[in-house]
Structures are given as structure tokens and as C-alpha cells.
Design a binder for these strands. Sequence first.
RNA 1: GGAGGGGUCGCAUAGUGGCCGAGUGCGUACGCUUGGAAAGCGUAUAUGCCGCAAGGUAUCGCGGGUUCGAAUCCCGCCCCCUCCGCCA
Length: 418
Amino acid sequence: MIDLNFIRENPEKIQKSSKDKGVDIDVNHILEIDKKHRELSLNVQKLREERNMLVSAIKGKPTSEQIEKGKELKAKLEKEENSLSAVWDELKTWLLKIPNPPKSDVKVGKDESENEIIKKVGTPKKFSFTPKDHLELGESLDIIDVKRAAKVSGSRFGYLKNEGALLEFALKQFAFEVLIKEGFIPVIPPVLIKKEIMDGLGYTQMGEEENIFSLDKDNLYLVGTSEQSIVPMFKDEFFKKEELPKRFVGFSTCFRREAGSYGKDTRGIFRVHQFDKVEMVSFVAENEDDKEHEYLLSLEEKLLKALEISYQVVRICTGDLGFNAARKYDIEVWIPSQNKYREITSASTTTDFQSRRLNIKYQDGNEKKYVNILNGTAFSMNRPIIAILENYQQKDGSVIIPKILQKYLHFEKITSKK
RNA sequence: GGAGGGGUCGCAUAGUGGCCGAGUGCGUACGCUUGGAAAGCGUAUAUGCCGCAAGGUAUCGCGGGUUCGAAUCCCGCCCCCUCCGCCA
């Protein structure tokens, strides 16, 4: 949520930044409603004052005159309060629709085609043979099974088996060790959250609701990332300034409906309805988020460098930025079978956008300020596994385990069982 | 799922229609006291909104209702605890 005062003072900025994100908002209309709301609010306050004065003048038994007066005030108040709350609802609805403005270093662009590649690391792996894709490898090594998953759960699900399952644990263990060393607090959060929490996070505003699994009978949502249940842990709470930055590393299963991606990445387990993910979440003081954003990105790079796979860092342009984020970096890894870089992690700063909605503050001297909240992927489980399979495949169809993960496993190589 | 108890200002508690935005204790801050500290004493100590300010207004889990007037009475919902049942 955007600070109403900021909108009053900078209507044209909000108008522009929303437009840059591809969100159509009529800021002047919002300001008109705001004006109406303020007038009504003043009326209501005065009527209440009158009512309170009358009431405090009554000691013991009221006279019939006083009762008449009270009834009259009550009727007036009820009317005014009704219009006030109607106008407030309208105002709030609009306010919640305004996206977080992008930071000044974010390129204005229409869609993902205008994202900026800001860094390339390593060189794309070359093979003396035609590399297989992850599904072909996964099936011949008997570590990925999407056929049976389709039978049991439908499309976009998969079984990870044998070394594939163990590989996930190794990745998780490695990420946790690195991040715990950095002072992150490990946490395994719930994956079902209430609707009001999902709204507060700003995930239901730009049509994303389509992408969220819900349990309507119980009025619960399944998280698409553990950030969604880690951030709201602190709803309506205050941090002490010394407690910041506060950093969490979470592990959870993530659920995505992937509506609107029909026909896209349908092969294998690149884009699935359910996957596990190690996620970083930071709470920092105001104006510290830029520094923290770079830090989270550097940790993501550290993890990928350890896997020794070529990647590039992309700064997402305004049109491709989500509702919440003021800036987002994606890291894309080299996928040999597709001959291109594909998204593997993502780090965003939401500035004070989520903390306003969720009322998460910190005490700075006598002042209470909104914290800045950031999130970033350490490892999702399916995509790093895909990257490892494809980049570490050998001519004979076997796959070498990256050195850094070998200490978590009892094998150095996955070979065909057929 | 069944039965009962409960959600009040950082924490713990008091408060069954007006004297309650709310007492007390703990905690915290400042001051006095002290060689220094502890103890003791004094003062202060929720948040949002409107206002230059004085002040006003709202908030006692959430939402509705009764009343001239609700933390307090009524209704619905949420959450927590205890016991029973079921169960990883």
C-alpha cells in the first residue's frame, strides 16, 4: 500500500509509475474520493463530539429532553457514518490497487523482452555430443517420473526418485549451511495461509489470484513461495532497531496453478504446480533495502557459482515487475538443451509496500517506522536439478554430481539403471 | 468432532451500563538519592486520524445489535487453553 500523503503530494509520480507497470489507475479520481472522505470524516467527528458532550453532561438519570436530543444525534450519526464507511471502502479499494512504484534504476519497459542483462558469469557449457534435455536424462536415470505423476495428479506434476530425491536434500542442506553461516534464521513455515494474509501481501491485486491454489471450504490459500508465510509472521508487530536486519531462510513446498501458461514449458519439471524451495527473507530499516538487495543477489550468485554453472543476472523492467516489487533481479542459468538462459532465482525488494499493508514497523528512537522487506530464492528444487542434469551430463548419459554437493551424497555420479 | 474456560494498554492482572482510554504490579525511560550501583522516592510510558496548537475523535480479538450512553448486555465469527474422542 502506498502512503496516502505521498499520493496527495505526488499524484503525477504515482500516475506515471503505475502506468509504467502497466496498471491503469486514475489518481485524480482517487484524490477526489480522498477529499470526500476527509470532509465526511470531519462531519462524523463533530457529531461524535456533540454526542459525547451530551452523554457526559448526563449524570444518573437523563431527562426526556436529553434522550430526545440523543436519539436525534444518533440518527444523524448513523447516516453520516454509513456514508463515511462506504466512501472509505471505495478509497481503500483504489489504494490497494496501486502497485509499488519501481525504483529509479529500473528500466521503463513493456514486458520481459525489455529486461536488462546486467551481468554474465561463466561460459555456456559446450558438448562434443548433442546434449539431452532434463526429462530424457531424468527418465533414463530413473530419477524423474512425470508419466506416473500425470496418472496420479495430472499435468505439471512430477516424481523425483532415487538420486533425484537425494539431490534435492543435498541442495537444501547446502543452501541452509551457507545461509545459516550468514546469520539467517532457519524456518519451516506453514504452507496454508488465510485470505486476509494473502491480500495483505499484495498477491491478489493484479490478477495473480488466478495463480493461487485455494481451499475454498476452509478459506485458505496455498503459498506460492514460503515468503508468503514468513513475512506475515510479524504482522502487527514492532522490531527494535537493533534487531534489524532480521533474516530468515525458509524451506517449504510451493504451489502454483500456472494459469495462463498453457503450452509453455510443458515438458518435464521446469514449470510444475508443486515444488520445494529454499527462500531468503530480510527485514531491514528504511533506506537499507538497496544494500540488502545487492546482498541477497550476491548470496544467490555465491550458491550458483558453487555449482559451477554459467548464469546471467537480469534486472526486470517496469512492465515485467510484479505488483509488490520496486526492483527485481532474476538469475538465469544456462540450459544446454534449450540453448539459452532460463530463470532459476529471483530477488525483490518490496520497500515498505508490504510492511504498510501488514503493519510491520520498527522502533527508531521515538519514532515507529515501516520496515523494508526483501525476498530472494536460494534454491528452488526442480530448476537447479534440471540445470545440474543438463550441464553435468556425460556422453554415456550419466551425470556427474557437482563437487560442492558430493559431501552430502554417497555418490559422485548418477548412472543409467536401464 | 463433543464438553468447558478464556482473549483488556510491552508482559501479568483489575474492571458486569455513565465517575473507564481504562486501575494495579512488572518492565522501560528520565530525574532525585549514592563515591558508584542496587534498593528507595518522584515523573513519564499504546496507536491511527483531524488540527499550527490547545484539543478533538476512534480503537479493550473481529463484525453486527440493544441503549441517550457499551470493555461491561445480546447475536455471529476468529483465535487460544483444558478435558474427551480420532489421528500422522
